[in-house]
């Protein structure tokens, strides 16, 4: 009973928040609505017994991803109203709902047709975080390492793309060139600061 109440409450909240995210013309409303929607989604994970996943959802999405978006929005002009020019708005809704229904059908059809059996069953004696750790560091070790490498690549790419003066490679330059560059750069920087 309580599970049903919680499910319908959080389902309504999540759908409402994500609808605001998709439909609003204010970028800040979209950001805050999506942050709250992410937290409401973690409630589903707690209801489904995936405690660790719920915690990760809160930490990673509302902690890291949303903070990154908020940080990125400082670069862009977000105060103006977003212009969404549409030639035919109705076809978008029809296409979206149809595609999602099709995807759900494709994903559900193997579950309906055959009896699936668990490869890594959830044991009641072991807590969720412990069970996740056991499976993650034995059966899924290689994907875990690959994910770590991918995150490292993404971090370096983010730094290089968003950082300043990254177009010059210091490792490919001789010592004299670096000294020359810093010597020419320094007076210009002080001039800029003085102008401000």
């Amino acid at each position: 009973m309580f599970e049903a109440i919680a499910f319908y409450l959080f389902a309504a909240l999540t759908i409402g928040m994500f609808t605001i995210t998709v439909m609003t013309s204010q970028a800040l409303y979209a950001l805050t609505a999506m942050a709250s929607g992410m937290i409401f989604i973690s409630a589903f994970f707690f209801m489904l017994g995936a405690d660790f996943l719920g915690v990760v959802q809160i930490i990673v999405y509302t902690g890291a991803v949303m903070a990154l978006y908020a940080f990125g929005m400082m670069f862009f002009d977000t105060t103006r109203t977003l212009v969404e020019k549409q030639n035919n708005p109705r076809i978008i809704f029809v296409l979206g709902v149809m595609a999602a229904t099709l995807i759900v059908f494709i994903l559900v059809s193997p579950i309906i047709s055959t009896n699936l059996e668990a490869r890594y069953p959830i044991e009641a004696a072991v807590g969720n975080s412990q069970a996740i750790g056991l499976v993650l560091f034995t059966k899924f070790l290689v994907p875990f390492e690959l994910a770590a490498v991918m995150l490292l690549v993404a971090m370096i790419a983010g730094i290089v793309l968003a950082g300043k003066k990254m177009d010059k490679s210091l490792t490919l330059m001789a010592e004299e060139e670096i000294a020359l560059m810093s010597a020419t750069q320094a007076p210009k920087d002080t001039e800029e600061e003085g102008a401000h």
């Binding site: 990760v56 959802q57 990673v60 999405y61 890291a64 991803v65 990154l68 978006y69 940080f71 990125g72 994910a147 991918m150 995150l151 690549v153 993404a154 971090m155 790419a157 983010g158 730094i159 290089v160 793309l161 968003a162």
Partner: peptide
């Protein structure tokens, strides 16, 4: 979730 995090980092940089 890991893919989403790295997608945000690279996408926002671009």
């Amino acid at each position: 979730i890991a893919i989403a995090a790295s997608e945000v980092a690279v996408g926002l940089g671009l």
